[in-house]
């Protein structure tokens, strides 16, 4: 039943071959071999020169057209801006290629690599795949997994230290990419709900959302996963790069707030 959405996308992007990669909550993600403005020869130096990602936010029929237009436009622009800012800060994320905010289309570089079972290499799929291989603790909480979580924690810290808020951190929105040494590196994606804020409250909610997503999606080992995430987050704040920039002060504020947010989630009155 997604066929008519694909047809809509094809209408906006005539003559561009599209194949569906996934259907997220608000967008359809396509893969294509075509670059919108560069010739093939000029792309040779790129690592993924033959594949690009097109993210298309179709109009949502359930939303009032006025709300829908406004949301599609603002989220597409916000996402593109966020991506360009991330690449300036050299925080791993897809490269922005082009944007059409009215139609809700973003063209970006390809990241990640399919897993052994053919699925996208998101953190979620990878952890699920590991669980399927071997339910015992050894594989799911190995050093490799620990490194990945520490890396993700550090990445989020870097974001927050630059006063950037992701807004929708889940294990589906973190891609894993194997680098030349065979080490998995995390890549952040999906910035439709992103914002800019230095407030401990916003950073704490950002962390809380991820913590809860891990808890509900990867419940068996969630405790240790979240511990690693926070450790990575801590370490980045106290690192040489950020220590001089009030890293430890910001860390204390955010963590204190995180404890408040957790309490709010659990203790809020629940009538009904």
């Amino acid at each position: 039943m997604t066929d008519h959405i694909v047809a809509q996308a094809q209408k906006i992007l005539p003559n561009i071959p599209l194949s569906v990669v996934s259907q997220g909550a608000e967008a359809l993600v396509f893969q294509t071999g075509t670059h919108p403005y560069c010739s093939e020869e000029s792309l040779i130096h790129l690592s993924n020169a033959s594949t690009f990602i097109i993210k298309y936010r179709p109009p949502k029929p359930y939303r009032h057209p006025k709300i829908d237009k406004q949301i599609t436009k603002s989220r597409t622009i916000a996402e593109a801006k966020f991506m360009s800012k991330l690449s300036k800060l050299s925080i791993p994320s897809p490269d922005l290629i082009s944007i059409d905010s009215i139609n809700g289309v973003i063209w970006m570089g390809y990241k990640g690599k399919p897993l052994a079972n053919g699925e996208i290499s998101s953190l979620k799929n990878w952890l699920w795949w590991l669980e399927k291989q071997d339910d015992s603790a050894s594989l799911c909480v190995s050093d490799v997994v620990e490194k990945v979580f520490l890396n993700i924690g550090a990445l989020i810290a870097k974001l927050h230290l630059n006063e950037m808020i992701h807004g929708d951190l889940t294990s589906s929105n973190i891609l894993l990419e194997e680098n030349h040494d065979g080490v998995f590196e995390a890549v952040l994606i999906d910035f439709g709900l992103s914002s800019y804020s230095g407030l401990p409250e916003d950073k704490a909610v950002d962390l809380y959302v991820l913590e809860r997503a891990v808890l509900s999606t990867h419940s068996v080992h969630s405790e240790i996963y979240n511990e690693w995430l926070l450790k990575g987050y801590n370490d980045m704040h106290l690192s040489k790069e950020f220590k001089s920039k009030q890293g430890s002060k910001k860390l204390v504020e955010t963590i204190k707030r995180l404890e408040d947010v957790r309490l709010r989630g659990r203790k809020r009155s629940m009538l009904g």
Binding site: G24, A25, K60, R63, H64, I67, D168, T170, A213, T217
Partner: peptide, 19 residues
């Protein structure tokens, strides 16, 4: 109603995509 329910449907869809 339009605003609140849009938000509800959106988070439901996000959870569906996630799980």
């Amino acid at each position: 109603q339009e605003t609140l329910y849009s938000m509800l449907v959106e988070i439901t869809e996000r959870a569906m995509a996630h799980v």
